[in-house]
């Protein structure tokens, strides 16, 4: 279980929160002008990186407020938490712990056999 530092309530267990998937997905301004493929991209396709991931959380069993987080999905380390009104932090602020796209990080992986 990971701890999440709610910007309004402080650090709580992850089970108090609900994940809202990828952050900064913008609804197309003029959906009628999109073809099926582009609309499908908006509805069904989300980033799924191993490494740095921008995501939304809501403190369901707390203040019930939404906020954004940057998390390394290969280790579950939360790198930054920011409010919805804050700007999207630049990816260059964060360092990925991965040596290769599908590789395992030095710490945090449950897959010990492939760790180098």
């Amino acid at each position: 279980m990971i701890l999440i530092n709610c910007p309004y309530c402080g650090e709580r267990e992850q089970s108090e929160f609900t994940n809202g998937g990828e952050a900064h997905v913008i609804r197309p301004k003029d959906p009628d002008s999109l073809n099926d493929k582009d609309w499908g991209q908006y509805v069904f396709y989300r980033s799924n990186p191993k490494g740095i991931f921008y995501e939304r959380w809501v403190h369901s069993h707390g203040c019930r407020k939404w906020f954004n987080a940057v998390r390394d999905t290969s280790t579950d380390t939360i790198l930054k938490i920011y409010k919805l009104t804050d700007n999207k932090p630049d990816i260059s602020e964060f360092q990925s712990s991965l040596k290769s796209p599908s590789g395992e990080p030095a710490v945090g992986s449950g897959n010990f056999a492939v760790k180098k």
Binding site: I2, N19, G21, T73, T75, G110
Partner: peptide
């Protein structure tokens, strides 16, 4: 309830 590659789980 969230994306992760850690092969552990909560």
């Amino acid at each position: 309830g969230y994306n992760s590659f850690t092969q552990r789980g909560g």
